[in-house]
């Protein structure tokens, strides 16, 4: 990671966190669809980022969001899990394409493979969140609907933000 990438990564963290904490926190559609766009920070970090840093950034970002939503530990757990799985998915994509260097982004990867990279991770993230939050097995259907709706809304927002970003 060079200096330019580091600055870009810091920008990414700040923009997504501010958006999440100040705006997306209030945006809940039909009481089902939340938008946890901050997960985009972990998903869009450059591929070369050290795996250890990805894990630590994930934890810090998760804790920050937790502090602002009174759910200490939940977002952190979900985000760390995503940060851990991310390299495997990237590795898989690289092997499938037969390249040894990959750049993340809708333009660099192409829409379909970008989506194929985003979707599983976002689904895992919201699943962990809502299943951790669920304290009663009777709420499982409700939680599943929330997981689906939240994943979709989050993906839509991340795609929109990605379309507007310069990378």
């Amino acid at each position: 990671m060079n200096l330019r990438q580091t600055i870009q990564a810091i920008q990414l963290v700040v923009i997504y966190l501010v958006l999440q904490i100040f705006f997306m926190r209030n945006l809940v559609l039909f009481n089902y669809a939340f938008s946890f766009i901050y997960i985009g920070i972990i998903l869009l970090l450059p591929v070369e980022t050290d795996r250890l840093y990805v894990l630590l950034i994930g934890f810090l970002v998760g804790i920050t969001v937790d502090i602002f939503s009174n759910t200490l530990g939940m977002h952190a757990a979900a985000t760390v899990l995503v940060a851990y799985i991310r390299p495997f998915l990237l590795h898989y994509q690289m092997e499938a394409k037969g390249v040894d260097r990959l750049e993340i982004g809708i333009r660099a990867q192409g829409f379909m493979s970008f989506l194929a990279y985003l979707f599983p991770l976002i689904l895992i993230h919201s699943s962990v969140l809502f299943l951790l939050e669920m304290n009663n097995i009777n709420m499982i259907l409700y939680s599943l609907m929330r997981i689906g709706a939240t994943s979709l809304l989050t993906i839509v927002f991340i795609l929109i933000l990605e379309l507007f970003s310069k990378r």
């Binding site: 250890l52 934890f59 998760g62 200490l72 530990g73 939940m74 952190a76 899990l81 951790l132």
Partner: peptide, 18 residues
């Protein structure tokens, strides 16, 4: 990496429970 991951998850869970 796996060990750091496990450590962070345990820390998170501990925070959740606490």
């Amino acid at each position: 990496f796996f060990l750091v991951f496990v450590l962070l998850e345990i820390l998170s869970m501990w925070l959740v429970v606490r």
